[in-house]
Design a protein around this nucleic acid. Structure first.
Lengths: 146, 146
DNA sequence: TGTCTATATTGACGGTCATCGATTCATATC
DNA sequence: GATATGAATCGATGACCGTCAATATAGACA
C-alpha cells in the first residue's frame, strides 16, 4: 500500500528493449524496468467503473439503454430485465448512477434513466468489445466449455 | 397507456405506441414487451469476464501484457505491478487464467503468462474502450462528480 | 385531507472476494 | 539426495456485494 515512489507508470520509454532474439531461453526474468502502461490511479478508476458494469442485470440495463431509440427508460421498464425485487432494481440503478454511468430525472410519478452523455461512447464501445460476435468470441459461450 | 418516448428495437414490436405529442404527461410506463438486446445468458457470461478484469492489479497485468513487444511475462515481472504478497499475485493470475483470458506455460523455474490468443483482440478492445483519452473520458478522473 | 402508485432507503443475511501466513509443489543446482 | 528458488495451494479473516422484507419518500389524484 505504500506509495510507489519509484518512477512507475509515466509511460517513460523503456530504456532497454527487445534485446536479443533468443529471449526465451529461460535465463532470467528480466526485471524489466519498464512498467505497465496503465497507471495505478488509472487502473483503480477503470476497475471501479468495470466493477459497476460487471453485473448481469446492470449489463442488460446498459445494453437496453444503448439501443438506438432507447435514450431513456423508466425504472419499471428496466425492472423487467430481470426477475428481482424492486429494491434490488433500485440498488443496481444506484450503483450505475453513483459510478457516473447513468443519470436519472424524475418526471411526475416515474423516474427516467439514461446514459450519462459523457460516458455514453465509452459504454457503447465497451459493450461492443464484449459482444462482438464475429471476430472476438468473448462471450459467445466458450467461457466454460473447454 | 401510451408509451412516452419509447419504441423498442426490432424484435417484438410494441402494440400500442407513442403517438401523443405530450408524451411526458405521465401516462404509463408501457410494459414494453420488447426484450433486452443482451440475452440473460450472454449478460451472465460477459459479467463473469468483466468481473475477472475489474480489478486494479489484474487490469494492469492485462495492460502490461497488451503492450507491443510484451507477449509474455513471468510471474515475478507481473508481481512488480503492485505491492502485494506472492500468494495474492498467484491468486489474481489464477482468476484471469480460469476466466480464459490468460494462459500460462512453465519453462524451467519460471512460469510465463500471456494473453489467450482467442481473447486477445477483445481484451485489447476493452482496454482501449476504457482508456481512450480523446473522446470518451471514462477513466480520466471524473469518476463520480457529475 | 387522504389514498394510491412509483421509487428510494434501511437493515439484515448469506455469499463471494482480496488478502495474507504457512505450507506444498516443481525445477534447478549443488 | 540436499538445498535453494519460483510459483501454486490451503486455511483463515475481514471487507464487500446481491438480495430481500419492511419502511419511507415523492408525486398524482380524489
Amino acid at each position: 500500500m505504500s506509495a510507489p515512489t519509484r518512477q512507475s507508470f509515466p509511460l517513460t520509454d523503456v530504456t532497454a528493449v527487445s534485446v536479443a532474439g533468443s529471449a526465451i531461453t529461460a535465463d532470467a526474468c528480466a526485471p524489466a524496468p519498464g512498467v505497465a502502461p496503465l497507471s495505478p490511479v488509472a487502473a483503480a478508476d477503470a476497475a471501479g467503473l468495470l466493477k459497476a458494469i460487471a453485473d448481469p442485470l446492470r449489463l442488460r440495463m446498459l445494453s437496453y439503454l444503448s439501443q438506438a431509440g432507447q435514450a431513456e427508460a423508466c425504472v419499471c421498464d428496466l425492472a423487467e430485465l430481470a426477475d428481482v425485487s424492486q429494491p434490488t432494481v433500485s440498488h443496481h440503478l444506484k450503483v450505475l448512477r453513483e459510478a457516473g454511468i447513468l443519470t436519472s430525472e424524475r418526471r411526475g410519478t416515474w423516474v427516467w434513466y439514461s446514459l450519462e452523455p459523457a460516458h455514453q461512447p465509452a459504454v457503447e464501445a465497451l459493450l461492443g468489445a464484449i459482444s462482438t460476435p464475429q471476430s472476438t468470441p468473448l462471450i459467445t459461450g466458450e467461457n466454460d466449455d473447454h
